[in-house]
């Protein structure tokens, strides 16, 4: 078990491993999103209050969940990179940031589109989750801006890792201080006492979409980490050997 992780931390091994895993992740993502998208749009009954407008939940909820998941992945790999000085985990942090930022943007955009028919406004400052999602986007932007302004990769890794960790301490505080405002957002539907408050025809597509988005995120992340590793190790021997071996087709 430990040996597996130790091997995984070495860039060439990771590169090979991720290359094998990505197609499986991508396949699972396509299958889940395909089923979830079809069932969510055509099979699930219309909501008795929101009509067909609720169907945007099948994109909104997975995107919002991944926006936070992305930040957690960033913070954890930043911590691992700072503490154990594993270069690969810095590459993961760097690769996760733009992905997380895009999912945050997607969650904001779908939330805003959902808000128009439901609340009558594109944007509602009184809604704490929309606002804290916006602040999360700003955290991502600050992280990427710091990274982009430091030329030396090793220094950029460490400096932005400190920022990611400080941000991670702040995320819950920001979330709850924004929540202090009065809320318009519908309460949690999925995770609450007494089981999810949804009929199964609506619920299963949503779970499938969440699973599919997670695998999509995983596939995109691993793919990005692979290119990041390749870029960072471009002068390393194994990269040259690998490229010579298969004539540059990989």
């Amino acid at each position: 078990m430990w040996k597996f992780f130790h091997k995984l931390a070495s860039p060439p091994h990771f590169y090979q491993f991720a290359g094998k895993v990505v197609p499986w992740f991508a396949f699972t993502a396509i299958a889940c999103i395909g089923y979830g998208g079809y069932a969510g749009l055509f099979v699930a009954p219309a909501d008795y209050q929101q009509g067909d407008a609720f169907r945007i939940i099948y994109v909104h909820v997975p995107a919002a969940y991944l926006s936070m998941m992305g930040y957690s992945i960033m913070a954890i790999s930043a911590g691992i990179g700072l503490i154990w000085r594993i270069k690969l985990s810095h590459a993961v942090t760097a690769a996760a940031a733009p992905l997380g930022a895009w999912f945050t943007f997607l969650a904001l955009a779908t939330g805003s589109i959902w808000g128009k028919p439901m609340w009558g406004t594109w944007w509602e400052w009184g809604d704490p989750r929309l606002t804290s999602e916006l602040l999360l986007l700003f955290l991502y932007i600050g992280y990427m801006a710091l990274r982009a302004s430091i030329d030396d990769i090793a220094k950029a890794d460490k400096a932005s890792a400190v920022l990611a960790l400080v941000g991670a301490v702040n995320v819950p505080i920001i979330h709850y201080s924004v929540e202090w405002w009065s809320s318009l957002h519908q309460g949690p539907t999925l995770v609450r006492e007494g089981g999810p408050g949804m009929v199964s025809d609506m619920l299963y597509p949503l779970l499938a979409m969440i699973l599919g988005f997670t695998f999509l995120f995983g596939a995109l992340l691993l793919g990005r980490v692979r290119t990041e590793v390749l870029f960072r190790e471009r002068r390393a021997k194994w990269v040259r050997e690998m490229l010579l071996d298969d004539g540059g087709t990989t």
């Binding site: 700003f138 600050g142 801006a145 710091l146 400096a159 400080v166 505080i173 201080s177």
Partner: peptide, 30 residues
């Protein structure tokens, strides 16, 4: 923290605001 991260960088001012403002939101809100 932000000032220490951006010290020695030439693009300091706007960058510092980007780093610090989201972290300062709880203070502002409360």
């Amino acid at each position: 923290i932000g000032a220490a991260l951006t010290v020695g960088l030439h693009r300091g001012t706007a960058l510092l605001s980007l780093l610090i403002l989201p972290l300062a939101m709880p203070v502002l809100i409360f």
